[in-house]
């Protein structure tokens, strides 16, 4: 600590007792100070976490009444596209038939849907993040009937699973629930 203080000046701490008291006090003060500083810094860091208005948009409700069988719609959720696909019975059958078909990311179709006729996927290719084509009938859907990512040629099937191409995993299924027959809450 201080070198010259004990040499100069008339008074000095009374031996060990003074030293111990000073050390405890130093420790206690330092602990309080460091704790206070941490508490003071925390708001600055937490302010970078999503703000209340961002969090308010972290769930959306979608009215799916008007989506006919065979129709696909896109909604925006947390800044990303979400594909909602009202599947026909043939599409569901094809999706389930391929459950064992040597999938790069094996997953049964029934594990990817709550109601088989509604497929809900995050429309972001798991390779490098492009938005796959296939939402509109005029767009290519790839060799497996689902979606096709034009950036590097990933093909997804009727269940949104990766079948061919560089993407490592299936299209993500977001957290969602049916509020009622015609309303989907995502997130």
């Amino acid at each position: 600590m201080s070198h010259s203080a004990e040499d100069t000046g008339p008074g000095h701490p009374a031996g060990d007792d003074g030293e111990t008291r000073r050390d405890f006090l130093t420790l206690a003060t330092a602990a309080l100070g460091v704790g206070g500083a941490a508490l003071a810094v925390w708001p600055l860091i937490d302010s970078m976490n999503p703000a209340a208005d961002t969090l308010a948009l972290s769930t959306i409700e979608v009215d799916i009444k008007a989506v006919k069988p065979g129709q696909r719609i896109t909604v925006k959720w947390r800044g990303k596209p979400v594909f909602i696909d009202h599947r026909t019975p043939e599409q569901i059958k094809k999706a389930e038939a391929d459950d064992g078909a040597g999938l790069p990311d094996p997953q049964a179709d029934k594990d990817r849907v709550k109601k088989p006729e509604w497929l809900v996927l995050v429309g972001v290719c798991t390779h490098l993040g492009c938005v796959p084509l296939g939402q509109k009938p005029s767009q290519p859907r790839g060799e497996f009937g689902g979606w096709f990512c034009p950036c590097h040629g990933s093909h997804y099937d009727f269940s949104g699973r990766i079948r061919k191409g560089p993407a490592p995993t299936n299209l993500e299924v977001p957290q969602y629930q049916f509020l009622n027959e015609t309303t989907l809450r995502i997130g």
Binding site: P43, D46, S47, M48, N49, A51, A52, T54
Partner: peptide, 27 residues
């Protein structure tokens, strides 16, 4: 990080900081 320096958005962005940003009012 949360302020917008444009005449149409500046006042609103400050109010957003006060209301929506975590600890924004404090900062």
């Amino acid at each position: 990080m949360n302020y917008t320096p444009h005449v149409d958005h500046a006042f609103n962005s400050v109010e957003r900081i006060m209301r929506d940003v975590n600890y924004g009012w404090l900062i």
